[in-house]
């Protein structure tokens, strides 16, 4: 782990207020992820994994602490800067795929390029290229409802990479998939991690997949880091 960290959090905390009760979803999380690594985040349900990923992805803002990604202080960004960070800085995929049902696979992959003002022709070209990279060129004009779970998640991966981020955040990407398809998706992430020097942070419960692909494993319990493992 001698490469400089692409992600560095310090004393990160997130508390939610439910009525009068303060729920600490994340507490004192200090974490570094070196560039080009594949990190897995594990922990029981409710341990704060999604909260951590949302903070890293700029979807949410911390209650305390700092997040630095690629030298930029994400935790201090305003709404507009956060939108730009989500556009270019970090791609995200989710357990429930989150594709736009009315749009075809190609159009879903185009979506981030629309917000980065890429013109239509170039957009189509890049989206087609990305779909080919995830092995779905033949499904470009299908709508999400016409695709299998694994195919939908591949479209989501292509979409997350559209603006060329150096960071991919995956929140239980295999939660809705069978074990064979899960292996394929994690395999795809690992391949992208190898080939493109893409840093991946993935939340997962599946110990076998984690052991097989992750370089680093972070364990969370009740919002705190309770263990980290790394292999070379």
């Amino acid at each position: 782990m001698n490469a400089p960290p692409i992600i560095q959090t310090r004393s990160l905390a997130k508390t939610y207020l439910i009525g009068d009760v303060r729920v600490a979803a994340l507490e004192d999380v200090t974490l570094a992820v070196a560039e080009g690594r594949f990190m897995a985040v594990t922990g029981a349900s409710g341990s704060g994994k999604s909260t951590l990923l949302n903070l890293l992805g700029g979807l949410d803002t911390p209650s305390a602490g700092t997040i630095e990604v690629d030298g930029a202080l994400v935790s201090a960004m305003n709404r507009e800067a956060l939108a730009r960070y989500r556009r270019f800085g970090a791609g995200m995929i989710f357990q429930s795929f989150n594709l736009v049902p009315a749009r075809t696979a190609l159009e879903n992959v185009e979506l981030p390029l629309v917000f980065s003002n890429v013109d239509k022709k170039e957009r189509k070209r890049r989206a087609a290229e990305l779909l080919e990279k995830v092995g779905l060129a033949h499904r470009a004009n299908h709508r999400p409802s016409q695709l299998s779970g694994g195919e939908q998640q591949r479209v989501a991966v292509a979409r997350a990479l559209a603006n060329g981020p150096r960071l991919l955040l995956a929140d239980e990407p295999t939660g809705n998939l069978d074990s064979r398809t899960s292996r394929e998706i994690v395999g795809l992430l690992a391949e992208l991690n190898r080939g493109r020097r893409l840093t991946v942070v993935m939340v997962s419960h599946e110990e076998s997949l984690v052991r097989e692909y992750a370089h680093d494993v972070v364990r969370l319990r009740d919002g705190r880091i309770v263990g980290t493992e790394s292999r070379a």
């Binding site: 992805g57 979807l59 709404r79 507009e80 939108a83 730009r84 989500r86 556009r87 270019f88 995200m92 989150n98 594709l99 736009v100 979506l111 981030p112 917000f115 980065s116 979409r159 997350a160 559209a162 603006n163």
Partner: peptide, 16 residues
Amino acid sequence: FREIGVMKAVGAGDGD
């Protein structure tokens, strides 16, 4: 609601 969330997640700004 969800579609708006998706657009924001992939980088849509408030203005968009």
